[in-house]
Simulated assay, not measured.
Amino acid sequence: MSCQRDKADSKTSDHKNDSVSLYVSAVNSKTEYVEKDGRKIAYRKTGQGPAMILCNRFRGIMDDWDPLFIDSLSQYHTVYLFDYSGVGLSTLPNANDSLMEIKDVADLSESLQLNRFILVGWSHGGKVAQTFATHHPAKVSHLILIGTVPLGKNAFPSEKIFFDYALKEVNDLNDEVVLFFEPADSGSVAAAKASRGRIDQRTDKDIYVKPDVFKKYFATNAAFVADEQGRTKLATLPIPILSLSGDHDIVFPIENWYALTRVYPNLQIIMLPRAGHGPQQQYPLLSARYVGDFIKNTN
C-alpha cells in the first residue's frame, strides 16, 4: 500500500458520494452514558462489526476525532468513542482521583458487555491502551497505537514547542497545525483545515477541556513513564500491536519505537510522511485502511 498522500484524504468531496450515510452517522452519533461508582462515562457509538474502543489524547474529547477517520473504521467495526472521567461530558465526583483512565475502559466495556475488543489509543490514549492491555490482556484482540510512545522511559523526548502550544487555555486551528500536523508542509496545513472543517460539522458539541484538569493527565502520565514493568510485560503478550506515527511527531517521536524492534515480536511500525502528531487526522482514509488491513491479517 502506497504512503503517497491519498487523494480522498486531501479532497473531502471525493469521499462524500460513496459513504455519505456513514459520514452523517459519525457526525450525528448520539451521546449516551453508562453509570458506574457514582460517575457517568459519556460515549458515542457508530458502525457495525467487531467492537473497537478509542482512547483519546491529552485534553481530547469525543469531538476531536476526525469524522472521516471514524466513518472509515465504522464500515467494518462498531466504534466507541468516550470521554475520560472528569473530562468533557464524563463526570468525576472526586476531582483528586486522577488515575481513572484504565478503570474507564474497564467499566465502559463491562457496561456495554464487550468481552473482547480492539483497543485504539492516540497520544496519551496510546499509553492508556497499553496499560489496559497489560492489566486485561484477555480482553484486547489488537492494540492500535497512534502518535504515541512505549510505556516507561524513552530516549527521544518531546520538543519544547509542544508545551508552548499544548498548555494554552484555548487551542485554535493555528495551534492544532503545530500540535498535530506538519506546519512546514503546505499539504499538511491544508489537511489540518480540512480535518477541522469536518470536525466542526458536528452541532451537538462536547465540553472543551480547560487547564484546571491538566493535573489529572500529568499524574497519570507520570505513572505511565514509571511503568517499566508494563513495558516489559507487553513483549510477552500475544497481542498484535500496530504503531502508526507521523515522520515528525513533536510530542512522541516515532524513533522511540525502534528500540523495540525484535523485542516486541508482534509489533509493526508504520510511518506516514510529512505528518505530525495526528497522522489519522491528516490521512484519515489511509490510516483507517492500514488499521483495517492490520486487524484482518493478524491474530
Score class of each variant (00 low, 15 high):
residue 185 D to Q: 07
residue 211 P to V: 06
residue 121 G to W: 01
residue 191 A to L: 05
residue 27 V to L: 10
residue 296 K to E: 13
residue 74 S to Y: 05
residue 281 Q to M: 14
residue 245 S to R: 15
residue 296 K to D: 14
residue 88 G to C: 11
residue 122 W to Q: 09
residue 54 L to Q: 03
residue 21 S to Q: 10
residue 219 A to M: 07
residue 56 N to L: 13
residue 148 T to E: 00
residue 178 V to G: 01
residue 41 I to P: 08
residue 270 I to T: 14
residue 215 K to W: 15
residue 46 T to K: 11
residue 58 F to Q: 01
residue 192 A to L: 07
residue 182 E to N: 10
residue 125 G to N: 01
residue 97 D to W: 03
residue 244 L to R: 06
residue 71 D to T: 12
residue 17 N to F: 11
residue 33 Y to L: 02
residue 184 A to E: 15
residue 11 K to R: 14
residue 2 S to Y: 06
residue 193 K to C: 03
residue 275 A to H: 04
residue 297 N to A: 14
residue 158 S to Y: 04
residue 106 A to W: 06
residue 111 S to K: 08
residue 115 N to E: 05
residue 122 W to K: 03
residue 149 V to I: 10
residue 258 Y to N: 11
residue 91 T to E: 08
residue 178 V to Q: 12
residue 225 V to D: 12
residue 281 Q to D: 06
residue 68 L to I: 15
residue 146 I to Q: 12
residue 267 L to E: 10
residue 101 E to L: 00
residue 97 D to Q: 04
residue 51 A to R: 15
residue 11 K to Q: 14
residue 127 K to Q: 07
residue 62 M to W: 06
residue 46 T to I: 13
residue 217 Y to R: 03
residue 201 Q to H: 06
residue 170 V to M: 03
residue 171 N to F: 02
residue 60 G to Q: 10
residue 116 R to P: 00
residue 138 A to H: 02
residue 220 T to I: 15
residue 107 D to S: 01
residue 126 G to F: 08
residue 10 S to R: 06
residue 114 L to A: 00
residue 15 H to F: 11
residue 125 G to P: 01
residue 288 A to H: 02
residue 108 L to T: 00
residue 56 N to P: 09
residue 9 D to A: 04
residue 203 T to Y: 03
residue 140 V to A: 07
residue 228 E to Y: 03
residue 113 Q to L: 10
residue 231 R to W: 04
residue 154 N to A: 09
residue 229 Q to K: 12
residue 89 L to V: 04
residue 261 T to K: 10
residue 244 L to C: 04
residue 202 R to V: 04
residue 233 K to T: 08
residue 291 V to L: 03
residue 52 M to G: 10
residue 159 E to L: 13
residue 150 P to F: 00
residue 231 R to Q: 15
residue 33 Y to S: 03
residue 281 Q to T: 05
residue 1 M to K: 02
residue 70 I to R: 07
residue 146 I to F: 09
residue 98 S to C: 07
residue 141 S to V: 04
residue 63 D to P: 09
residue 75 Q to V: 06
residue 23 Y to C: 08
residue 44 R to N: 06
residue 45 K to A: 09
residue 210 K to M: 04
residue 297 N to Y: 15
residue 216 K to T: 08
residue 245 S to A: 15
residue 77 H to A: 00
residue 182 E to P: 01
residue 120 V to M: 10
residue 12 T to N: 04
residue 291 V to E: 00
residue 226 A to S: 13
residue 123 S to Y: 10
residue 241 I to R: 13
residue 71 D to Y: 04
residue 199 I to R: 13
residue 117 F to A: 03
residue 272 L to F: 02
residue 138 A to I: 01
residue 206 D to Q: 09
residue 241 I to P: 08
residue 82 F to M: 05
residue 117 F to Q: 03
residue 71 D to P: 02
residue 77 H to P: 01
residue 84 Y to Q: 05
residue 53 I to L: 11
residue 19 S to Q: 12
residue 17 N to I: 13
residue 274 R to D: 14
residue 251 V to L: 12
residue 173 L to H: 06
residue 2 S to V: 02
residue 251 V to Q: 13
residue 231 R to D: 12
residue 135 H to Y: 10
residue 52 M to W: 06
residue 193 K to W: 04
